[in-house]
Design a protein around this nucleic acid. Sequence first.
DNA 1: AAATTTGTTTAACGGTGTTAGATTATTTAC
DNA 2: GTAAATAATCTAACACCGTTAAACAAATTT
Lengths: 199, 199
Amino acid sequence: MGSKERIQRLKDETRANILDAALQIVKEDGWQALSMRKIADKIEYTAPIIYEYFSSKEGILLELTRQGYIILGKEIKAAKSKFTRTDEQLEGMWIAYWNFAFQYKEFYQLMFGVDMICCEQKKSMPETEFLDKLFFDTIKDLMKAEHPDEDVICRKYYTFWSIIHGLISINMVNRGRNEEMNQHILKDALKGIIKYINE
Amino acid sequence: MGSKERIQRLKDETRANILDAALQIVKEDGWQALSMRKIADKIEYTAPIIYEYFSSKEGILLELTRQGYIILGKEIKAAKSKFTRTDEQLEGMWIAYWNFAFQYKEFYQLMFGVDMICCEQKKSMPETEFLDKLFFDTIKDLMKAEHPDEDVICRKYYTFWSIIHGLISINMVNRGRNEEMNQHILKDALKGIIKYINE
DNA sequence: AAATTTGTTTAACGGTGTTAGATTATTTAC
DNA sequence: GTAAATAATCTAACACCGTTAAACAAATTT
């Protein structure tokens, strides 16, 4: 009897509901407010049920991290495809990264916050590699004239990322400070760095 | 009778012991392992005693943050005094900032981690202003030729800080990755930015 | 020596993540 | 259709957390 599939669908739905509930709680009251019992309340179950779907709270965070990387990957890929010139592509990609950080603030905090899950598990996530590759390839393209070492590209990428991430995280604690100035700094930094890459 | 002072001294000592114990626990097992009961254990008291010295756990964190700013302020002031040329001063100061982040990792995480205490209380700490002023003045000095706006200096400072902080926090999660490369990136970024400030 | 203040602890509240065992509902086998 | 087996779900509990109130012990003041 094909009800096996129907049951599986229900299970999948509950799993998705858990993740949605978690995200909703975080959006309302921040990461520190997230608890298993609150999730359970929201999906109208009791807490232990969640352990049928995730091995621990960290498991939920890890899955949300994965979802975050998928969204971010899509956004950046889309941003890249909007341009033909490589330097414009790179700039667009970083602006997309920036926008993601504020549009999906909770995701960004989870993915790149200092406090969160250790990186061993994150490193083994294919979704992060996709993102890395996207940037890596674009920078490589931009520098193809000088046939750069992999190390050099890696370093440029690292530098880029640090700058943007630094800008974002400083803006996230002083949030809403001065939106105009932030955009100014971002564009400024990007122009400077892209120039610096090409020299 | 002058035993009033002796008693006050004992109280001060216990207060300091609480802070030391907290820091020791964090150094051993990280911020997430810090609890009031563990602190109490370490100073051989029971937990409620701590509330005679600090109004809450957050009060302890806030005081440690203050201590961190004092240390950082000293280090950066010392670094500046090692040079006469302004550009060398600025570079030295940021390198000192970098070194602080890794030498006093726990402090840095507390002071600049995304998750931590909200910034309203931090902003009202005079120790942070001292630090800001130190950098601000140096950048101003470095740009004095072109009589820059306060806004411009602020923006440069912001940009600087973001870059260094970004480098640090990315290195802190991927810790021990490639010490040599990190130093390379740091020096590279510094040179680039200082040049960018002067143009 | 009695009364008062100070220091310290015990016990508790409501919260957290997590697990074991009991209970209910559903599916399978006869 | 009823009995056995399986799956789904809940209750209760453990050990921890930050924090507070009340009880107790120690020192100080009167």
